[in-house]
């Protein structure tokens, strides 16, 4: 069976759903961050798949590199924020951090 575009999209979707699920269910802030990474990676899979099977240009791959870079930066900042949260609240449980509650 020839591996086609749809296969990639399904994998992407699964990774996306896994990411969203992680974000929604994890109470640990680091877990939430990992979920976000999964969501971003699913986007990468889709980009590369479209690039490969779609127009044939390099735009998708360039964008995916951007996303990887962005993910790295986001992870760094996210971890810094988590550290800050830990310093302030002595926990990284996102349910207990609700200072923004209206």
């Amino acid at each position: 069976m020839e591996i086609g575009l749809n296969h990639y999209l399904v994998v992407g979707l699964l990774v996306f759903l896994a990411g969203v699920f992680t974000v929604l269910t994890r109470r640990n802030a680091i877990g939430v961050l990992m979920g976000v990474e999964l969501v971003l990676n699913s986007a990468n899979i889709n980009y590369i798949a479209f690039s490969r099977f779609g127009t044939g240009g390099l735009e998708g791959q360039i964008f995916s590199i951007f996303v990887i870079m962005l993910a790295a930066a986001e992870a760094a900042i996210g971890l810094a924020i988590v550290l800050g949260i830990y310093r302030k609240f002595q926990t990284i449980d996102v349910e207990e951090v609700d200072s923004l509650r209206g």
Binding site: V20, L24, T25, R27, V94, D98, L100, R101, G102
Partner: peptide, 18 residues
Amino acid sequence: RARALQTGHIYSYLYAIV
């Protein structure tokens, strides 16, 4: 009135998004 929506919990916002 609207502030009730603001729970301060990230996951509740994410639920809303989903």
